[in-house]
Amino acid sequence: MTTRKNQAIALAAPITIWAVHFIALYGLISASCGPRMLMPIAVMQMTTFIVTVVALIGAGLPLIRVPVRHQGDDLATAIRVCALISVIAIIANALSFPFFSSCGG
């Protein structure tokens, strides 16, 4: 029972972390580039970097340790592929940030 629960969590968690990461980055951009200019762009980029590292660690966990009984089954594949795609997508979210030194490009 608990194994199954862990499996369900391991399947859903990485991509959920991607979603949180995406929202966080969107929020950071809005905070930094919106008319309110809540933070300078350098702070925004620094925060983005930290948030990304944290998200990558979280989303990558199931890659290292898959909570399944035997490694060959479909659920193990699903969990691993899910985590991998999430990790890639998190990197992609942050990928363009170093390209820009200001909001205007």
């Binding site: 992609a92 990928l95 363009s96 390209f99 820009f100 205007g104 490009g105």
Partner: peptide, 15 residues
């Protein structure tokens, strides 16, 4: 594509 496209964007997005 992404790198190509972002570099292009940076070039044309300048005001």
């Amino acid at each position: 594509l992404f790198v190509f496209s972002t570099i292009t964007l940076r070039a044309i997005a300048r005001t």
